[in-house]
């Protein structure tokens, strides 16, 4: 289990835990960043302050602080 911020660009996997507090958690979930979703790390800015991931066809930008709260089990890239 790794936080998004510990992963390299290009990593794929499955979301196993979203530890963020409400209402950020609710927001992440409605964007598809929810337990069980297939996730892919797309990009981060130079200082790794902002990250971009893709879940289920939706691209989501989030800050380091929020990205550190989303945990995934790295695995195969399916898509």
């Amino acid at each position: 289990m790794k936080a998004i911020t510990e992963c390299a660009v290009g990593t794929c996997g499955r979301v196993v835990k979203v530890r963020a507090k409400e209402p950020v958690k609710g927001r992440l979930v409605s964007l598809g960043v929810a337990k069980g979703a297939q996730i892919r790390i797309l990009d981060h800015t130079l200082a790794k302050q902002t990250w971009e991931v893709e879940c289920d066809g939706t691209r989501v930008a989030l800050r380091e602080e929020e990205a550190a709260q989303v945990f995934l089990e790295p695995g195969e890239c399916t898509a």
Partner: peptide, 9 residues
């Protein structure tokens, strides 16, 4: 506030 945002295609 936290930054969480959808990036459209």
């Amino acid at each position: 506030e936290p930054f969480v945002m959808e990036m459209p295609p």
